[in-house]
């Protein structure tokens, strides 16, 4: 939660031309939300601490540059552009890129209805991506006892690699490779040592259906999932 602190300096900034009150250093996604503007986010989540800024889905404009709102902190006199048609389209394009880069088959994914990527696709009214599907050849890692790693769906957001540790404070997931060969590697021994609660936590942390609890499957009815209306 981005709590407003009494000790922080109050400042004024412009959101889409409208002057609003902010606290110096406030996270722009949270600030905008306070003022009724919903900036789409994917790698960001409330209360995450240091933002990752990997997905760029929260892209807005500041000083004629495109910047990610989640990593931007409020400064006196800022003039931010958020809700223009071109920016909305740019954010939609970023979602489309994530869809074409992976192999996302929502109909049989157990995260369907709970998936942040699917939710954003629907919210931003994505129908067919404007980019060609890459049909990357990716695998599924069945080796761990409790976790199934579905590389086809990983959007490389870094949540699992940077925001998750086992009981000993060790990381279980890490990046491997570079550029288009970048992927997440799971440490099988550490994954097998995770408690049920930690497995549930990391499954919840992953915004898509890449980290799954084995055997959990489609455990909730339609109507009771995160994004069901």
């Amino acid at each position: 939660m981005n709590k407003l602190s009494k000790n922080t300096k109050k400042i004024n900034i412009l959101l889409d031309g409208k002057e609003v009150e902010a606290q110096e250093g406030e996270n722009i996604v949270e600030l905008a939300k306070r003022h009724g503007i919903d900036i789409p986010v994917l790698c960001y989540y409330e209360g995450m601490g240091e933002c990752l800024g990997t997905c760029r889905v929260c892209t807005i404009r500041w000083k004629r540059h495109h910047v990610s709102a989640c990593t931007l902190k409020a400064e006196e006199g800022m003039d931010l552009t958020i809700e223009t048609e071109d920016l909305k389209d740019l954010r939609k394009a970023l979602i489309e890129l994530l869809f074409v880069e992976g192999n996302h088959f929502c109909p049989s994914c157990e995260k369907s209805g709970d998936c942040d990527l699917q939710h954003l696709g629907l919210k931003l009214e994505m129908t067919v991506p404007r980019f060609h599907y890459r049909f990357n050849n990716r695998s599924i890692n069945f080796d761990a006892d409790k976790i199934l790693f579905e590389h086809n769906r990983c959007i490389l957001c870094k949540r699992c690699t940077h925001k998750f540790e086992d009981d000993n404070g060790e990381r279980v997931f890490a990046f491997k490779g570079k550029g288009s060969n970048l992927s997440v590697e799971m440490n099988i021994e550490r994954a097998n040592g995770l408690s049920e609660e930690l497995v549930d936590q990391v499954v919840e942390l992953c915004p898509v259906g890449a980290i799954l609890k084995k055997g959990k499957g489609f455990d909730r009815p339609i109507g009771k999932r995160k994004y069901d209306e």
């Binding site: 109909p107 049989s108 157990e110 599924i140 069945f142 199934l148 959990k216 499957g217 489609f218």
Partner: peptide
């Protein structure tokens, strides 16, 4: 083939 078993009832019905 190559998919987890619990997907079968949801995937194959397609």
């Amino acid at each position: 083939q190559g998919r987890p078993y619990w997907e079968a009832p949801v995937l194959v019905q397609r």
